[in-house]
């Protein structure tokens, strides 16, 4: 009898988790899509004068939300806490110019890439002698904590990696001479260059893919978003967005 109850409870739990796994898309349609981001990464996402989150990712997610028929809400938080927030269901999706990496794929699922481009090395204009990754040996390299670029910097022998909470702080550290170089995605690098005219791009690194991240059990939502992205690529909306933000 006792055993029977245990089995029933277990089956109930399994059934419940099975039902949860099925309901990501339905849940999002009913309750809206909560999107986590770190608004220190222009033009993917940043804060405007009224502290509203704007950027490529915001426009993209609003278009995707319209395709899915879900209301999209953005939540700004620290970059390194995004994946834990996703895994603990505080958010449904990460849209933070997130590079698709093998390491992250162990914990989360990615949608199809929506942007591809290289990372770049940025220095101050007065700096000489840095033109490739190996030249960063013995230099202070500013990156964001938990970023794919931090991983690249850590891979350079002898480089002194400085991880900041915000990417904007990493750029500020470079501009105020607290660091010698910065590794960042090219689009973001260009945005920083507009803000800090004393900086320059000195090298392009490997191409990387950028995607949206979801919990692994939400494969139904991921498929729906993949279809939406594909549609936006076909009907030219994606190019319009790219032209608006990445010019």
């Amino acid at each position: 009898m006792r055993k029977g109850i245990v089995v029933m409870v277990l089956m109930g739990l399994l059934g419940a988790s099975g039902a949860l796994a099925q309901s990501c898309l339905a849940n999002v349609k009913a309750n809206g899509l909560t999107v986590g981001t770190s608004p220190d990464y222009p033009p993917f996402e940043s804060l405007d004068k009224n502290n509203k989150i704007i950027g490529f990712d915001v426009d993209l997610l609003n278009l995707i939300g319209a395709e899915l028929g879900a209301k999209v809400t953005f939540v700004g938080q620290s970059f390194d806490g995004l994946i834990p927030a996703l895994l603990t269901k505080k958010i449904d999706l990460i849209a933070a110019g997130l590079t698709i990496t093998e390491e992250r794929k162990k914990s989360v699922d990615f949608t199809r890439p929506y942007i591809s481009g290289p990372n770049v090395i940025i220095t101050r204009k007065e700096t000489t002698g840095i033109s490739k990754l190996e030249d960063l040996a013995g230099k202070k390299v500013a990156v964001q904590i938990g970023s794919a670029q931090e991983k690249i910097a850590s891979g350079v022998k002898g480089a002194e990696v400085k991880s900041y909470n915000l990417y904007t702080d990493a750029a500020l550290a470079l501009n105020t001479r607290q660091a010698d170089a910065l590794i960042v995605h090219r689009f973001v690098g260009r945005a920083f260059l507009k803000q800090y005219p004393d900086l320059k791009i000195v090298a392009e690194l490997n191409q990387v893919d950028t995607g949206l991240a979801l919990r692994k059990e939400c494969s139904d939502l991921r498929r729906a978003i993949d279809a939406a992205i594909e549609k936006l690529e076909k009907n030219g909306k994606m190019d319009e967005l790219a032209a608006k933000w990445f010019k």
Partner: peptide, 11 residues
């Protein structure tokens, strides 16, 4: 601790 948790996602 932050550096490790940002890498492993185990805060």
């Amino acid at each position: 601790g932050q550096l490790i948790s940002a890498r492993t996602f185990k805060p």
